Amino acid sequence: MDLPLEENRGRLTYWLFYAERCVTAAYAEVLRAHCEERGKPYVVTPPQWGALALLLMQDGMTIGTMSQKRGVDAPAATGIITRLEQTGLVERRHNREDRRVVKVYLTDEGRDIAHTLVSAVEDFEQRLKQGFAEGELNHFLTQLHQLILDAAEIGGDAGDRITLPTAGG
């Protein structure tokens, strides 16, 4: 890969955006290949995987809760859920106690593909980490967390939508 080093050597924002694009493209390819290998008529995208993973941990969330946990706005979360619903991976159900509340649940197909995607995602994570020596990854994550905190301080409430994971996970 030919990286444009000289003109962007000291530009942190450039390299953060560039890294995000590269990781997202690779992530999307892993998810696409996984679905294709299983003969699925759909492809799960990284944002869709985020929603499926949340529902694997706690089925029956509202879209509002999911959007908060993923750090995306409600319209974006609604779009993700709509596309998952169209492919038959999730369904929306009204709450029995309060019909105004709508919760999202995995379908059997959604649960099946989500369970198989877990290993593909874990393998992808391991492959991303392979270039780091022991201890370097935790240091790198600590630095990323600091960048996020600094950006949140500059951007005001933008950081309020993001829940930081712990350095180890």
Score class of each variant (00 low, 15 high):
3 L>P: 12
4 P>E: 11
5 L>S: 13
5 L>N: 14
5 L>P: 09
8 N>C: 05
9 R>Q: 06
9 R>Y: 09
11 R>D: 11
11 R>C: 08
16 L>F: 03
16 L>I: 14
18 Y>V: 10
29 E>Y: 02
30 V>K: 13
33 A>D: 11
35 C>R: 14
39 G>V: 05
42 Y>I: 10
42 Y>H: 12
44 V>A: 02
47 P>I: 08
49 W>Q: 13
49 W>F: 14
51 A>V: 09
52 L>Y: 03
55 L>F: 05
58 Q>P: 01
62 T>N: 07
62 T>E: 13
63 I>S: 07
63 I>L: 10
66 M>D: 03
67 S>C: 06
69 K>S: 00
70 R>M: 07
73 D>C: 08
73 D>E: 01
73 D>S: 05
75 P>H: 03
77 A>L: 04
79 G>K: 05
79 G>W: 01
83 R>M: 09
88 G>S: 05
91 E>F: 08
96 R>C: 02
97 E>D: 10
100 R>F: 11
105 Y>A: 03
106 L>F: 02
107 T>C: 02
113 I>L: 01
113 I>R: 04
117 L>P: 03
117 L>T: 06
118 V>Q: 12
118 V>G: 02
120 A>E: 06
121 V>G: 06
121 V>M: 07
123 D>T: 12
124 F>E: 11
126 Q>P: 08
127 R>K: 13
127 R>H: 07
129 K>T: 02
131 G>W: 04
134 E>W: 09
137 L>K: 05
140 F>M: 04
140 F>W: 08
141 L>C: 12
146 Q>Y: 15
146 Q>P: 00
147 L>D: 05
147 L>P: 04
150 D>G: 02
150 D>S: 06
151 A>F: 06
151 A>W: 02
159 G>K: 01
164 L>K: 06
166 T>L: 11
166 T>A: 14
167 A>G: 01
